[in-house]
Amino acid sequence: MRAGFPVARKGMVIGLLGGSFDPAHAGHVHITREALKRMGLDRVWWLVSPGNPLKARGPAPLADRLTRARAVMRDPRVVVSDLEARLGTRFTAETLERLQAIYPGVRFVWLMGADNLGQFHRWERWQDILRMVPVGVLARPGWGVRGRVSKAARIFRGERVARGEVLRVRDAPAWCFVNLPMDGSSSTAIRARGEWRV
């Protein structure tokens, strides 16, 4: 395995939670633990991105965001990673293609909050993402209905499965909306309050 890359064995099912994590907070921790439990994942990798193509403002330095994420997410089943920077990928579809090539025999499940499902159709090659890996959508405050009636949800409604654990074995395209107790933490609100410090 390449230096700096997480270790994964053939047959493992790994959830990928990508984002700016600017900053990481209790809401990220909450949905990660719920995904591990409700989808039966072996591991979750946080993919702390170098930047977000959909946001005009750049995030805090990557090193600072990684440090904060590692301080917040303390679970041996979770790896906080700068894989996208190491891979040199900018878009999720590219990242997934590279990871599938590097980790043959490992099953990946893309994880996202319902807020991301609401604007998923704006992502580069979003339909390819849904065809590459199963997608687990986790409820977020104020986004339950909006996420479920989004453009992506409507177009791929026939591929929706009822339970999160099905994503362990079902090939893409497949997605699930997972209702769970809500955590209202928000990176935007934390930054607005001036609380974002390493």
Results as ranks from 00 to 15, higher is better:
residue 10 K to V: 07
residue 40 G to L: 11
residue 36 L to V: 09
residue 57 R to K: 11
residue 2 R to C: 06
residue 148 R to S: 09
residue 38 R to T: 02
residue 136 G to K: 09
residue 110 W to R: 14
residue 195 E to A: 04
residue 159 E to G: 06
residue 153 A to F: 14
residue 113 G to Y: 08
residue 4 G to W: 00
residue 81 S to T: 14
residue 10 K to M: 05
residue 121 H to K: 06
residue 192 A to P: 06
residue 52 N to L: 05
residue 91 F to S: 12
residue 162 A to S: 15
residue 2 R to M: 09
residue 185 S to C: 15
residue 53 P to V: 07
residue 52 N to M: 14
residue 168 R to T: 10
residue 150 S to I: 07
residue 145 V to R: 11
residue 155 I to A: 12
residue 26 A to S: 13
residue 5 F to M: 10
residue 23 P to S: 07
residue 192 A to Y: 03
residue 140 R to I: 04
residue 102 I to Q: 13
residue 72 V to N: 00
residue 14 I to P: 01
residue 62 L to T: 01
residue 48 V to R: 02
residue 147 G to R: 01
residue 81 S to K: 02
residue 17 L to W: 10
residue 44 V to F: 01
residue 98 R to L: 15
residue 134 P to K: 10
residue 83 L to C: 11
residue 158 G to C: 10
residue 64 D to P: 02
residue 162 A to P: 07
residue 189 A to N: 00
residue 171 D to N: 12
residue 3 A to R: 11
residue 187 S to M: 15
residue 83 L to I: 11
residue 133 V to P: 04
residue 92 T to H: 06
residue 17 L to R: 13
residue 143 W to G: 05
residue 160 R to T: 03
residue 196 W to K: 03
residue 2 R to T: 01
residue 192 A to K: 15
residue 181 P to L: 13
residue 162 A to M: 14
residue 87 L to I: 02
residue 3 A to E: 13
residue 37 K to A: 15
residue 62 L to N: 02
residue 186 S to I: 01
residue 159 E to K: 10
residue 189 A to D: 06
residue 69 A to R: 00
residue 100 Q to T: 09
residue 191 R to G: 09
residue 163 R to Y: 04
residue 194 G to S: 03
residue 66 L to E: 01
residue 27 G to I: 00
residue 52 N to A: 12
residue 59 P to Q: 11
residue 20 S to E: 03
residue 195 E to S: 03
residue 142 G to Q: 05
residue 46 W to P: 04
residue 190 I to P: 01
residue 188 T to H: 08
residue 50 P to L: 02
residue 82 D to W: 00
residue 88 G to V: 03
residue 99 L to V: 07
residue 109 V to N: 12
residue 54 L to V: 11
residue 114 A to W: 00
residue 2 R to P: 14
residue 89 T to R: 09
residue 113 G to Q: 03
residue 122 R to T: 13
residue 106 V to A: 13
residue 168 R to L: 05
residue 88 G to E: 04
